[in-house]
Structure formats: C-alpha cells, structure tokens
Design a protein around this nucleic acid. Structure first.
Length: 511
RNA sequence: GGCGCUAUGGUGCAACGGUUAGCACGUAGCCCUUUCAAGGCUAAAAUGCGGGUUCGAUUCCCGCUAGCGCUACCA
C-alpha cells in the first residue's frame, strides 16, 4: 500500500503502467469522527460502494480527523460498525489523516517553494474581519467580490507572535473549470476564490499548529491514494474549484467529481437531530433490516431509470450508475422506509430473515438453542413465516410475537376487554378445550371443525369463539389466523393456555 | 451581502421536444376477512410564476420567486 509515498511522485506516475489497475476506479468514503454515521454520510458511503462494486473498483475508507477540537476518536468504532451493518465493506483502510500529517506538511513545503503558496502572518480574526495583515498599517484588499487578500500574498509579512499559516496563492487572473459527473461542467472566476489556508497557524503553544485544513488533506490524500472518482455530498461542490487549483499546482490531473444531492428533513432543511433519528445506528436499533435500509437509501437521489424500486442489493449494484444521480435534494421519508422494511420482512427468502429474528430474540432473552437443531429449525422457520407479514420492525417478533416463543406472556387488557365479554365464554372454551384435547390429529382443519361446530350448536358466531381463543392462546387481539397459530403453538400448549385463560376468565367475571 | 445549484402531486422518482404527464410511499374509499396486517381495486392530488425559441414545451433559453449550498486556520 502506497501509504506514505510522496504525493507528487505518485501523481507523476499516473496513469499507472500496470494494466491491471488501468480501468479500475478507486473511490473513497471519508467521514470525520465528529459524530455518529448519519443517513447523509451513509448514503454517500453507499453510492461509493455501489459504484466500486459495479465498476469492479476499490473502495477506500479514510478517517478525516484533522480538526483537533471537534475530533472524537472514540466515535470511529461506531462509524465502522454502522458501515458494516449497512453492508458497505471497504477494501482499504481505514487510514487516519492524523497519522499522515508529514505528508501534508511535505506537500505544503513543495507548494511554498514553487511559489504556489505563501506564508500568512495575519491572525484569523484580523483576516476574517477584513483587517488583514499586520498592525493595521497593511491595507487589506477586499475586492468587490467579497474576497479578502492580504499583504502577505505580496511578500509583505509582518511579524507577530504567530507561527504563520500557509495560504494558497490563487492564480490571478484566471478561471477554474472542472467537469462534474452529476452537475455537468462548472467554471468559476478565480477572483471569487479566496487564498485559502493549507496549513494552520498557531500561537506557539497551540496543538493545531501546522495541521492541514480540509482542502489540503483531501487533495493530498486523494492524490496519494490514487482516487479516480470523488463521490461526495453536494455541499462540497463550491469548494471543488479550490481543490482543482490545488491538484493543478501539484501537477496532477484532478479526478472525476460526482456530487450527490443532500438529504433533507421533512421541513426541507438539512437533516439534523431535531428531525429525530438521523444516525444509522438508531435505525439498526429500531429493528430495520439493513437491506431494506440500503434499498431505501439508494433511491434517495438516484434512480435506475424506470419505475423499478424494490431492488435487492445485487440489482442495485447491477444498475448503479452516476448518470442516474439526481441534482435535487431529497426529503427523508420515514414512512417509505418503513414500507421498504415491511416489504423485505415479507419477501426475503425465509432463511435470510431467520438470522435477524434469532438475533432479536437473543437480545430479548427469548432464544432457545433447540431452534438451531434441524427439527427445531423447521418449527422456528414456520413460526417466523407465519408472523412476518404482520411485523413492521424486528423487535415486534419479540414483543408483539412473544407468545409464540415463550409460555411466559400476559393478556393485553384491551384485547381482553374487547373479546372476553360474553358470559358463556368460560363454558364454551371449556368444552372446546376438552374437544381439542381429544383430537387424534393436530392441524388446521382438525382445529377448525370442532370450533365451528361448537359455535353453531351454541348459537354463537364462530368469530366470537375464534377471537376469544386467540386472546387466550397469544394474549393479543392481533395475531395471525387462529388455526395456523394453534398448529404452530402445538396441542399441549394450546390446551394448557386455554385452561389458564378459562381460569383468568372466571377470575374477571367474579370481580 | 457575494457566488452557485435546484425547481414534476404532501414525499421519493419516471417521462431526457409530441404520453389522457407514469410508478411507488402516504391519504381516502371499496373488496377480501376471524382480529390485525398483507393483498386486490378505485379516488383525490403535480409540471412554482412570467417571458421567449419551436408546428409543438415538463423537457431548450432568459428573468422572477422560493429552497438549499458555499462564502472557516469545520469537514
């Protein structure tokens, strides 16, 4: 891995003489550990991943941790974990920019010697305030465009107690252009681009002294890592000309840029905490299936062209292309995400769904090892299959579906109130229980017939008994069709539960 | 303030000069029905505004408006 190679040298080696790597794109995802992985970042990661897989390329993971103040190293693991959950696996890295500082300093020195950059002695406050350079005797130049240039650019440094910053000398006059794979050709006049900082200044004791800024570290790293396509959020599009200038100053042809639109909250402002859950981890915790989340995310700002939208990951990979990326910001629609989840819950081959359910049950301490055995597995699969169309989120298997996996459940008061009203119920259920107990066979119809016959002879609607029995054996008003439920739960347990319910029923009618 | 980007139903997308403007989510209703889902059917709902170009504009151009982004020694 060409980790610490000289950026200039590796740049000059392009295009690679190795034919094997000639048409293999190299892309990267470069989060900064200032928070969890949010859905915007996840979508960017996903697009990079889809592109890399589709084009048979390489995805590199790079941690952009050059901001000493906001950087929180303990967050890195969470980001990696979220990416793994999402199924976005990377081929190289993670690299940490904080461990590559020398590379940026070297590049900055190169730019300094070539005259492409200069030392700036202005304090950040003065520069920003338009009072650039020196003790106010240096005239700042604030152009009509609102771009500040200080005297340092012309080699009129004033000394101070600052270690100078290194600024890029934007070539004037001139224009900078680049081609964006999504937004098309872009061009900006250089006099609109300020002389941005490459390496930070500092007071003598400042930790951030000599640390690179974003513009510097991305470009140097993207060159060093031989990135061919920069796929990132559209919030970076305005900064791209600066980076293009840097590439040129470093003697390197810029990569292809592809800016993808932003993800907004329902109020059309940038998605943030106040919109509720924005971290990938929170969706995992809520019980979304990663593939459903991926499918949903992929369609935010990208379309395969036609009306298709239920696309499994392999299909996303097959169809992904930068051409399909939209230019308009997209609103994150949770309702649609939930719909995708229910779709996957229902349509996934059962064997793919089972591991997720197993994990959920383990987390709720409902998992039993016997379900891993071949006979137990068959029952488990059947039960999950029965429940799946009614489940919205994974934890529903353990909460709403609890009675299917353990005898330790209670009656939902609302269900009881609704379906245990008739006074004859105790008597009827007792009869039913006796009949069920006598059944030689235990299957859907064997359960169905005696119940309906009993209802008819008692002159009540079958629904009355059906609903009451459902509450008796699963404690809920909402459950799969009764006779399927009875089959899955098994004769002995059904009988036991019915007897328990009859007792409960008697207790309630007494009071 | 400056610079830029964007603009199809409430939401995500399709239609890349000619369609009754399509699909999906959501919403409403109906069907199915044993609760709740699922499923099926139906309905309401969109080309921001104003100018051009063209035989013909959702589509191309200009202006306006709105939203968003950038304008940091944050990324």
């Amino acid at each position: 891995m060409p980790l610490m190679s000289d950026p200039i040298m590796s740049a000059n080696n392009r295009p690679s003489p190795l034919s094997a790597s000639r048409n293999r794109p190299r892309v990267r995802f470069a989060p900064s550990p200032t928070g969890y992985l949010h859905v915007g970042g996840a979508r960017t990661a996903l697009f990079n991943w889809l592109f890399a897989r589709r084009e048979n390329g390489t995805l590199i993971l790079r941690i952009e941790d050059t901001d000493a103040d906001r950087n929180r190293p303990e967050l890195v693991d969470g980001i990696l974990e979220s990416m793994r959950w999402l199924g976005v696996n990377w081929d190289e890295g993670p690299y940490f920019q904080s461990q590559r500082i020398e590379l940026y300093r070297t590049a900055a020195q190169t730019l300094l010697s070539s005259g492409a950059a200069y030392l700036c002695y202005c304090s950040p406050e003065k520069y920003a305030g338009g009072d650039a350079a020196g003790e106010s005797d240096e005239p700042e130049e604030k152009s009509v465009r609102g771009v500040t240039r200080c005297g340092c650019r012309e080699g009129k440094p004033s000394s101070g107690d600052y270690k100078p910053a290194i600024r890029f000398r934007v070539p004037l006059p001139g224009t900078t252009q680049f081609e964006d794979a999504v937004f098309g050709p872009r061009e900006v006049s250089n006099d609109e681009i300020e002389d941005f900082v490459l390496l930070r200044s500092s007071k003598s004791d400042d930790e951030s002294s000599g640390l690179p800024t974003y513009q510097m570290s991305v470009v140097v790293d993207d060159i060093d890592m031989r990135i061919t396509h920069v796929i990132r959020g559209a919030d970076h599009i305005s900064n791209t000309p600066k980076q293009v200038l840097l590439y040129r100053a470093l003697g390197v042809t810029p990569p292809t840029f592809a800016h993808v639109p932003l993800i907004l909250g329902p109020d059309r402002t940038r998605l943030s905490k106040r919109h509720g859950a924005t971290s990938v981890g929170s969706y995992r915790d809520e019980g979304f299936l990663p593939e459903a989340f991926r499918n949903f995310l992929a369609l935010l700002g990208w379309s395969p062209g036609g009306d298709a939208q239920f696309l499994r990951t392999s299909e996303l990979v097959e169809r992904f292309s930068l051409e399909g990326v939209s230019r308009t910001n997209a609103v994150f629609d949770r309702a649609k995400l939930e719909w995708f989840n229910t779709q996957y819950l229902q349509k996934l081959p059962i064997e793919e769904l089972l591991p997720h359910v197993e994990e959920t049950l383990r987390r709720h301490e409902l998992w039993r090892g016997e379900w891993a055995s071949s006979t137990g597995h068959e029952w488990f699969a059947r039960t999950v299959d029965l429940l799946r169309s009614r489940v919205r989120l994974l934890p529903d298997f353990a909460t709403w579906g609890r009675a299917f996996f353990t005898d330790d459940f209670s009656y939902d008061p609302a269900a009881r109130d609704k379906f245990w009203k008739d006074e004859r119920l105790g008597e009827l259920l007792a009869k039913l229980t006796d009949q069920l107990e006598q059944l030689p066979d235990w299957n859907h119809d064997a359960c169905d017939h005696p119940l309906r016959a009993l209802a008819e002879s008692a002159g009540v609607k079958a629904g009355l008994l059906i609903n009451a029995t459902r509450v008796a054996i699963v404690g809920q008003a909402v459950a799969p069709p009764l006779f399927d439920t009875m089959v899955v739960i098994g004769k002995d347990r059904v009988v036991t539960r019915l007897r328990r319910a009859i007792a409960a029923l008697a207790a309630t009618t007494r009071t």
